[in-house]
Computed example of a mutant assay.
Amino acid sequence: MRIGKQDQAYTAIATSDADSITVRGHDLCDDLIGQIDFSDYFWLLVIGEKPTAAQRKMLDACLVSIAEHGLVPSVQAARMTLAAGPDAWQGAMAAGLLGMGSVVAGSTEVSGRYLAEVMAKADSDGTDLETAAIASLQELKAQRKKVPGLGHPQHSGGDPRANKLLAIADEQGISGRYVETLRVLAKHAPGIINRPLPINVSGAIPAVILDAGWPLEALKAVPLLARTAGLAAHLYEESLRSIGFIMSHAADQAITYDGEPSGSAAKHLA
């Protein structure tokens, strides 16, 4: 069965023959292995060209900032999966990555698309970013929706990771329209939403990496790669001293059943 277009049978990423492997126009063995750092290679793989020094520094900073944040839900899912199947690292890793949705870690993409939406609104209306940002914030308030990229339940006084990323972007001359949009939103959000809303790391990452030249369509790849490193650390530790079943037991103790009692229990209560 033919599904979708059949006239784009090409890839520009890699090819190989009996004697060589070519990646983005570079010989893998002669030009890349031992010659390029992994962050540069990641940029090359996704975008098709090597990053500048400033782009590399910004990507490295983003990856480091989001790789680890303790026993978050994705980590708990991965560790409990490995505890139940010690031979299934790939399954445990997948469990952790599958939990990176629009609320935790995957919120980077949500924030990036929101920034792009505000910018596009300003362009289409022929107005300035501040006017577009204020209108967007008022709309979110009316709909009782959260502001993507702003606020954090733990770092309510300001997310130190976000502050550091923005400082690096400024130092490297990377800060552009995305960072400007984020800062304008952060300026007006507390007064409109009526509560403190500092920039969080999921707002800073898309702003700085998009201004650095990373494509919006591949934004989710950044936190996914970063969290893979963090999950590897947790899975290695889990294999040495398991806490997966401890977390499972703690969850069982913390949650109270409030469904219908069984027939025997109902009879006893009567």
Rank of each mutant, 00 (worst) to 15 (best):
R2F: 13
I3F: 00
G4N: 09
Y10T: 06
S16V: 04
S20V: 10
R24P: 09
D31F: 11
L32A: 08
S39G: 06
W43G: 01
L44I: 03
I47D: 05
A54F: 12
M58E: 04
L59F: 03
A61L: 07
A67C: 12
R79H: 14
G85A: 09
A88E: 04
G96Y: 09
L98K: 04
G99Q: 05
M100I: 07
S102N: 03
S107H: 06
T108C: 13
T108L: 06
E109K: 04
E109F: 00
S111Q: 15
K121D: 13
A122V: 05
A122G: 01
D123T: 04
D125T: 06
G126Y: 12
T131M: 07
L140E: 15
K141V: 13
K141Y: 10
V147H: 14
V147Q: 15
G149N: 03
Q172I: 02
G176P: 05
R177P: 13
Y178T: 05
L182Q: 02
R183E: 04
P190C: 14
N194I: 07
R195Y: 14
P196N: 09
A204H: 00
P206W: 11
L210C: 14
A212G: 11
L216Q: 09
L219Q: 04
K220H: 11
K220V: 15
A221P: 13
V222L: 10
P223I: 06
A226K: 02
A233W: 00
Y236V: 14
E237P: 01
S242P: 05
H249A: 08
D252N: 11
S262L: 11
A266K: 15
A270H: 12
